[in-house]
Simulated scan of single mutants.
Amino acid sequence: MPTQTEIELQAAAFRRLQQHLMQDRTDVQNIDMMNLTGFCRNCLSRWYQEAANERGIEMGKQEARELFYGMTMDEWKANYQTDAKPEKQEAFKVAFEENVGKR
């Protein structure tokens, strides 16, 4: 069982990852993250939602995304998301199926 210090360090690392993705590297597209790593900002928000739900905290997909992104998905898309080329979209279908679809 992790110690309280270990839990706090893990939480701090998560908050720093979130800051990095949401403030420092808004230029990195979710589709590129998913294609390269098998996860993206949406996955992180979903994992946050799942952790809340497992602890009896009701949280929906949109609420989790807004908490993680610090704004609505519509705002994020308008401010930071760019159009993806067809080859990226095809690669995304594969990456999504391999990493999210088999859940």
Rank of each mutant, 00 (worst) to 15 (best):
Q49M: 12
R41V: 08
L17K: 11
F68M: 07
D27A: 12
T5G: 05
A78C: 02
F14A: 14
N35I: 14
G101H: 01
T72N: 08
N30L: 11
E58F: 01
A84F: 07
E97S: 09
P2R: 15
D74E: 08
E6C: 09
R46F: 05
D24W: 08
Q23K: 13
G56D: 02
V100G: 04
N53G: 01
E90F: 03
Q81R: 10
G56S: 07
M34N: 15
E90N: 03
L67G: 01
I31F: 12
C40E: 12
R15A: 14
C43N: 02
F14P: 08
T26L: 03
T5K: 10
E58C: 03
Q23C: 12
R15L: 14
L17I: 13
A91M: 09
M34L: 15
Q10D: 08
K88M: 04
F14G: 10
L67I: 04
R41P: 04
W47Q: 11
T72P: 06
F96I: 02
R103M: 08
Q29V: 15
Q18R: 09
E66F: 07
M71S: 07
T3Q: 06
M59V: 11
K102H: 07
T5Y: 12
I57H: 07
Q81C: 08
T3M: 07
Q89H: 03
A51F: 12
N53T: 05
F92E: 02
L21Q: 06
Y48P: 07
F92C: 01
T26Y: 00
A91I: 08
I7W: 02
F92N: 01
K88E: 08
A52N: 09
Y69A: 13
D83T: 10
Q89A: 02
M22H: 10
I7K: 01
V94C: 04
M33Y: 15
R25K: 15
K88L: 06
S45T: 08
I57Y: 01
E8K: 10
K77D: 00
M34A: 14
R46A: 05
E58A: 04
K77A: 00
L67W: 00
G38Y: 15
K77C: 00
Y48H: 11
A91R: 13
R46D: 06
A64C: 02
L44W: 03
K85D: 08
K77W: 00
Y48E: 06
E63G: 00
Q29M: 15
N42V: 13
D74Y: 03
